[in-house]
Simulated assay, not measured.
Amino acid sequence: MTWRMPAETAEHERTWMAFPREGVTLGATAEERQEGYEAWAAVANAVAGFEPVTMVADPSEVARARRMLDGAIEVVEAPLDEFWMRDVGPTFVLDEGGRLGAVDWIFNGWGAPAWAEWQLSAALGTTVGALAGAERIGSLLVNEGGGIHVDGEGTVLLTETVQLDPRRNPHADRARVEAELARTIGAEHAIWLPRGLTRDYEEFGTNGHVDIVAAFASPGRVLLHEQQDPAHPDHAVSQEIRAVLEASTDARGRAIEVIALPAPATLRDDEGFVDWSYVNHSVVNGGVVVCGFGEPEADARARAVLVQAYPGREVVTVDARPIFARGGGIHCITQQQPRA
């Protein structure tokens, strides 16, 4: 039996999300927590305009979730601590006959940092897969959905600092990782990028998730985060990754066309250099839900690029600054279930 992860542009059955709960990620004050709840709800409500959404909520947050979410959104109860569904949930795949599978990676809080609370959410791969009626595909690889991006035709993008992170997989090498990705998601060809964005290596980062820097728009075409200001350290990162992509081919032997997705103008926030990226968007049935950063010109420019990259889809912007302040973006908090 061969499992394959479809491209994110393939038809979805639904999107899965997890509702925030109190803890270090959500925020220390009532105002910070409310901001987080509202940001997650805004994304869910936007996605629900295109396709069904199922929201997993901790028992402590079920009532709030039902209060804040569109009435069409299904809310299911399960214990959780972290609520980045892309990373804590399963990666959905299909077999040759269209049967649904759910890859249950090991999740250890992005390398088991001292601050992370992840033990409850580590079980969501199994829980969500079962709720979806999928066959569980177990894996011994410590991995997160934000650490991979596929074209649906056998090519996977990933970074050397995630799956090869000694805090995640101390005994892994490229060959072992590639073999496991071939078994679980049908990846025949891996394009290893050297790193992710600068901020992602700080205390609350993922150590270089690919889904904030590069994403397949379609086979052979990759959207690349482009930091155009040399004053930002990601200017050099963008150039390095572009060089790797332009020297790469995909599983079908095609050269990679790079589509620049320029970063917003803001360089810093109170914590340092920002990692604000339009690459971290969610493709849904008939649409794209993209991060907004309160910069009308830059947000509009990103929408225009994405309209061209995803013909026939409506592009909707949701303010993602509160999500990025907590460590990720719209792609990080959503996980698509392909139509079986």
Rank of each mutant, 00 (worst) to 15 (best):
N108K: 11
G109E: 02
W110C: 01
P113L: 02
A114W: 02
A114V: 07
A114G: 01
W115C: 05
E117H: 04
E117V: 01
W118M: 03
Q119A: 14
Q119Y: 02
A123N: 08
L124V: 03
T126H: 07
T126A: 09
T126Y: 07
V128C: 12
V128Y: 01
G129N: 06
A130W: 15
L131C: 02
A134P: 13
E135L: 04
E135Q: 11
R136W: 03
G138R: 15
L140Y: 13
L140C: 12
V142Q: 05
V142T: 12
G145V: 04
G146P: 03
G147P: 01
I148D: 00
H149F: 03
H149V: 00
V150C: 06
D151I: 03
D151V: 03
T155S: 14
T155P: 11
V156Q: 07
V156R: 09
L158H: 09
L158A: 12
T159N: 00
E160H: 14
E160F: 07
T161D: 04
Q163T: 05
D165F: 09
N169G: 00
H171K: 12
A172E: 14
D173K: 03
R174E: 14
A175E: 15
R176V: 02
V177R: 06
E178C: 11
A179F: 03
A179D: 12
E180F: 10
E180V: 08
E180L: 10
E180R: 13
E180K: 10
E180T: 06
A182G: 14
A182R: 15
T184C: 12
T184E: 07
I185S: 04
I185E: 05
G186R: 15
H189W: 15
A190H: 12
A190L: 14
I191G: 10
L193A: 12
L193M: 14
P194T: 08
P194I: 07
R195P: 00
L197R: 11
T198A: 02
R199K: 13
R199H: 04
R199Y: 02
R199G: 04
D200M: 06
Y201C: 08
T206I: 13
T206R: 13
N207K: 04
N207Q: 09
H209M: 03
H209G: 00
V210Y: 05
V213K: 10
V213W: 11
A214R: 13
A215R: 15
F216N: 11
A217F: 09
P219I: 13
P219S: 10
G220V: 11
R221T: 15
R221V: 15
R221W: 02
V222H: 11
L223D: 12
L223E: 13
L223S: 14
L224F: 06
L224D: 04
H225Q: 08
H225V: 06
Q227D: 00
Q228W: 06
D229A: 09
